[in-house]
Design a protein around this nucleic acid. Structure first.
Lengths: 269, 269
DNA sequence: TAGTTCTGTGTATTACTTACACAGAAGAGC
DNA sequence: GCTCTTCTGTGTAAGTAATACACAGAACTA
């Protein structure tokens, strides 16, 4: 009945985080064991190769066999560094988002709104520049270094705001979700353009034409009005949708913050 | 140089929508051709079977072979009804969300905010009751009947609001994204609970414990504050996060609407 | 009755993840 | 230096999955 036999997952050398060995490696815990033969590969090199493959040929090209071939090793050797493909995905995702960019000195004077806005745009830029990240099915809460660094940066933006911790993390999740959703839609659009080989306007036009055939003023008055408008065709601003969503969220948050400050001011007076 | 030879996808019997045959079928276009032998299966029966499988054993159990076995036919016979697995996914998704629920009579007196709130909650309820839907990788814009019905319902909620069509559809996408994100997180949580076999609090506790090991006040002050708070452990309200996000969005939208109405009132005076 | 068209199916191809066992390398302890 | 332990890379193989292709036969049309 010794209670040390339920550590059936980790090798025991790690910090007992419950994380897979490769992730403890990514955090810098877990030394290389000094025993066996020198490894040919390193985890960063594997991840780097997989990322290059994803960036170049898309996520579909990333298979264990293909990554191994790219590295000049056998497929199974990768499993010495990673226990499952999903783990490689997490590491790729972490490498793909990278560390959040450094803040300029003048950021010290910025308020939560400016900071959150820049946070959102920076994240969006990263996702759109590495849109293969969006094709990785993420499941579970973030546990990798860079993902947490981004979370920290988002929380820091609201450090001085009169919000509870629950509200802060909810805001981070809310805006993070928006960023991801919008970037994914943009990537889908891109894929459709590349696959069909026609212009963005033509893709949209085809979609509108299709919807017109299935809908009508009787069954779908709202959709019909939408299709008659220039909401789809008029491509005035490419990121209108993103901007609109972010502005609504931040306006709503501002209302909450101002309400809190009014209460606080009233109590102080 | 005849221009009728670029219809290489659809069989020609359909309405020329550019949609795959199975989807035209779902829309009620495209009659059954009277020639060959009577089909053993029907598209709805295939979808129904696949949905039952997904609901019972999860999305991982849904393969073409398995669905066929469940129906007592050969794998390849399914390809007479669906050209690719992705198409079955779309049909499953459409069947899973179903038609939006009927509005009660008193809904006539509701404003856009109440209507949008109920729309969001109704959608969330459907996704959480059929969380396998969240495991289907969706790509591309909605083209199936029920998906469009939900979109229509959302647009209808804002029919009288002083918003442009572009703003309306952006709002639908914004809230729809929130609903999906939050439902997906809840489903991930559920999976973690089922897989580990422990209580929700224990899963959260393990996550917090893990994060504590990787973070510290120096490198992650915001995260540290978060972990010290009861944001994760205090499970006062299970849907706090969802409610919070929705309220922020609707508050932000309200600010926009009120601004518009003020301008309008000023012009009328 | 002949011809056309459509159905279900068997077979086979290709690709992918991963379990398992083995040969050999590198350090640890004596 | 020798032995033992531990760790590495690898080959093989099992299991699963999507789907291209061609064929036999059904049901309708002319």
């Amino acid at each position: 009945m010794a209670d040390e036999d339920d550590e059936d997952d980790e090798g025991g050398a790690g910090g007992g985080t419950g994380l897979p060995a490769s992730l403890e490696m990514a955090w810098g815990l877990r030394e290389r064991p000094g025993k066996g033969p020198r490894p040919t590969l390193t985890l960063p090199r594997i991840v780097e190769t997989a990322v290059a493959l994803a960036a170049g040929e898309g996520m579909d090209a990333v298979s264990m066999g293909r990554v191994a071939k790219e590295l000049g090793v056998s497929t199974m050797s990768l499993y010495r560094y990673v226990t499952a493909k999903e783990e490689l995905y997490i590491l790729m995702s972490d490498a793909g988002v990278g560390a959040p960019p450094a803040l300029p000195p003048e950021a010290a004077g910025w308020g939560w709104r400016e900071l959150l806005t820049r946070w959102a745009y920076a994240q969006r830029a990263v996702l759109m520049a590495n849109s293969w990240i969006l094709r990785i099915p993420i499941t579970g809460a973030p546990v990798s270094p860079n993902q947490l660094a981004w979370m920290e940066r988002g929380l820091a933006a609201m450090a001085d705001a009169p919000l509870t911790e629950g509200e802060k993390i909810s805001t981070i999740i809310l805006i993070g979700g928006l960023v991801r959703n919008e970037a994914t839609m943009a990537a889908d659009m891109m894929d459709a353009i590349v696959k069909s080989g026609v212009s963005p306007d033509q893709v949209m036009g085809q979609y509108v034409r299709t919807l017109r055939l299935m809908t009508g003023p009787d069954t779908h008055p709202g959709v019909t009005r939408l299709l008659e408008s220039d909401a789809f065709t008029g491509s005035d601003e490419p990121d209108f949708q993103f901007r609109f969503g972010l502005d609504r969220i931040l306006d709503g948050l501002a209302a909450l913050v101002e309400g809190r400050q009014a209460v606080q001011d009233g109590a102080e007076a």
